[in-house]
Every structure is written in C-alpha cells, then in structure tokens.
Nucleic acid binder design. Structure first.
Lengths: 231, 231
DNA sequence: GGCGAGAATATGTCTAGACATAATAATTCT
DNA sequence: AGAATTATTATGTCTAGACATATTCTCGCC
C-alpha cells in the first residue's frame, strides 16, 4: 500500500491514467470505488471525484451510479475544435483581413430541415480574404422571425459571421465538416479550378426551439483545421 | 435582490449564461466575484466555482486570479469531435464492416516532422469498407522503437487503427482535418474519380516524447463529421 | 417462476471552512 | 524616481461531512 504524498486531483488523474495505460486496469475493468481510492490516496472524496469525472469527460472512463466506474471499452479520440470569428482567424495568421458582400436577398423562403421551420430568411453571400487572396466563401441564411434586428442591419462593412457571433446568442447548434468539389461559380469566386476540393463547414444554430441562422463556409483550397488531443 | 431557490451549479450556470445572452453582462465585462455571487444566490462558493469554471471551459468566460472573471470578448464555437475506431464507426451506421490490408512495409525510414525523430517505421496501407463499398483508406506509420510489439503483429485480420487504439496508449497528439483531391491510385482504391474531393484526417500521436504513430485517413466522397455545439 | 417493494450501494452534488497561488497594488528602501 | 518588498485580492483547490439520486440486488409474495 504505497500512499502518494501529493494529493491534488491532477496527480490522481495522472496515476489513474497510468494504471489504465499500463493495463493494470484493462478496458472494461471496473476500478475501485471513490471511497476505496480516497483510502489509498489519503485524500477527500471530492478530490478523487474530480479526477475521475474529468477522465470520464475525456472519454477514458464510464461512470454509472451504483454500478461504479469502469475503463471505457471503446476508446475514442476526443478533439475539441475552436471555430473563431473569421476576421480573427485571419488576423491570427498575421494576414490582412478583407471582406466583400457579394449578394443580399432579404426575402427568401427557406425550407429549414424537414419543413418544420420555414419562414422568412435573409440570404447573404460574402467573401472573406486573407492577405488579398480569397479565404472563405460565406453562404448565410438568417431567420428574420428569430432575429428581427437582422432585417435592417447593414452587412456591407461587417460580416454576418461577426455580427451574429457578437450580438445574437444561441443555445445550441449542429455542425458538420466535409469535403466538397467547387462548383463553377464558387471556383470563380474563390479563384480556384472547378471541382477543386474545398473544406466545408456547415452550421445550424438555435435559440431554444427557434432557428437562428444557417451557414455554409467554403474554404479556399489548402485550408485545414488543426487541434490537439490529450489522454 | 431576488435570490434563487434552486442552488445547483447547473441553475447558476444557466442564470449566468442568461445574463450574458441578455447583455446584462456584455462581452468584456468583469462579472461579480465568486463571493458576491454566493451571497446573491445563497449557496457555497464551490457551487459558484463549478458553474463559472464550466462556462470558462466552454469558452464563454475568461478567468484570471486576482483580476476576476469576465465575459469572453472573442466568442468561439467550441465543438468536441469524437473520432472512434473505424470498425465501430461503420457498425454504428448499421453497415457491415470489411477490412483489407493493401500493403505492409516493415522497414521504412521516415522523416518525422523536422528530422528530430526519424528511425524505423512500419508502413501499412489498408482499406476499410462499409456495406461492401470502400469507406476509408488508412495510410499508417508505426514507430518500431516506441512500439516494438508492432514488429510481429499481424495486421491482415485486425486493422492497425483498432489494434493501436485498444493496445497502445498515448499521452497526446496533433490532429488535422482537411479536404484533398484524390490521387490516381487513391481514386482507384476508393472507387471514385481522380481529383474527387476527399475528407482527410491526419493524426500524429505521442507517448510523452516518443512518437507512436502517424496516420492519414482518406474518406470516400460524401463523408462528413457531425457534432453539436452548446452554449 | 415471475413480479413488486424495499434495502443496499456508488456516484452526483452541496456546504462551510481553510490554505495555496497568481497577479496586481501599495509601500518602503535606495 | 526607480527598484525591491510587502499587502491585497480573486481564483484554484482540498477537507470532512452530509444528503440526493439512480441502479442494482434481494427478499417476500402471488
């Protein structure tokens, strides 16, 4: 029974992870209870709880009341991706940011998903540039019912991307990443060949039950999202 | 001073988020200290702490010792993406899973990043299928120094993807998502046209300072990653 | 044997208090 | 005035104990 001296939740986190990696606790194994671990590590239960909870959030452990805590059978790589405002993304790269509104259609009827929410939408197309070169094409629909203030907003200087994120809240959203071939008009706008592989982010955001906005972001060829995974 | 009755960290989380959304606490604003909030909500500091900490993890708040807590100036959409074992990904779709090892080269010298880590690697190419159709092409390098047991492992029945994730631990990794055009040979393997837009995931994993494995996953056309964002 | 009520149990969360830590503000010394 | 030291402050974390809650197990009943 080798008690550890440092009783921080981080040290317990590390030790539990070490045992999992060392296969002392193989996948599927039910590990000792929080109380058992408090005895072993000589600390309070809240400390063990925080370590195990964090590991559960990371997908390493699975916890169920009464049953206990076990090592996850199906390891996943859990990556967190930050999607910033495009202007900031460009400026972080050290490039000058440019923005151009391509089209603005104020009274579009959009069928939102499976016809459940349709109504008046404002449709915008805009190009964001980095260092003078096309960076991403924004294809945007804004619900005028949920966001009435978008009706009179001027998007010729500030992008809908930036205005919405800094002014209009949302509770949740669906997001998807995919690879698409550039259409003829997209290729022309982005300055690439028709059919060039483009990285696409599509996002639907909601405020409770109300649709807020839908957007498709088509990034110029060469774009990639980078992030780190841990544990 | 309207005190709330329900003093769970979730309710405080919701209330703080509501005030941010309602612009009672606009971006950049320093919000009351934890102690002030404990007085207002009539609860323990640990409860407020958990609510604010969770919001900080979500990117909504920024916290600094002594300075206090303020509403994030630069809102980001923070998405967590789970990347499972490919076999499970296919089976979750309700499709039958197929696997074929295409090539296996046991003594490759790979220049790992900027020449800092090079050495003996095993190089594998394999095709994962869903419902008989090509699903993803796996291009894999495994460090034989860090993972000596990979030298004699048979990858003709079980993919390196699955074997590594279930047997070899790692401490951290870099991951990137991008869109690439299919090369001639890739197109032939995946059953698509040359130049078709392919979703690509590239991953480098490390065990402390030792490189473990590098992989490029080229998904057949039509693939997309879906996830949700909250807050 | 099947079913429902109740006991047992491990996690989830809250409290009240304490000390640690980082970063700023104030003060003292040169 | 400028540098070094000290105080202040808000967050970060830990403790010990308590109650809540979701599940599972068990036992008695039909």
């Amino acid at each position: 029974m080798n008690k550890l001296q440092t009783n921080t939740w981080q040290s317990i986190y590390d030790e539990v992870l070490r045992r999992i990696h060392a296969r002392e606790w193989p996948p599927g194994q039910v590990i000792p209870t929080e109380v058992d671990l408090t005895v072993e590590f000589g600390c309070a239960r809240a400390t063990v709880n925080r370590a195990l909870q964090t590991l559960a959030d990371a997908g390493v452990l699975e916890r169920r009341r009464k049953f206990g805590t076990r090592v996850a059978l199906h390891p996943v790589s859990r990556a967190t991706v930050d999607i910033p405002i495009i202007r900031q993304e460009v400026e972080t790269l050290g490039e000058s940011y440019g923005y151009e509104l391509l089209s603005d259609d104020k009274t579009i009827n959009l069928h939102w998903q499976n016809d459940t929410h349709n109504g008046q939408f404002r449709h915008l197309r805009a190009l964001h540039c980095a260092g003078g070169a096309p960076y991403v094409l924004e294809n945007r629909w804004i619900s005028l019912e949920t966001v009435p203030s978008a009706k009179d907003q001027d998007f010729s200087d500030q992008s809908a991307n930036e205005w919405l994120l800094t002014h209009i809240p949302y509770t949740h959203g669906d997001i998807s990443f995919s690879a698409l071939g550039a259409s003829g008009s997209d290729a022309k706008t982005l300055g690439c060949n028709t059919g060039s592989p483009l990285f696409s982010i599509e996002r639907l955001t909601w405020d409770h039950d109300q649709p807020v906005t839908a957007v498709q972001l088509l990034y110029a060829p060469g774009y990639e999202i980078r992030t780190r995974i841990g544990a």
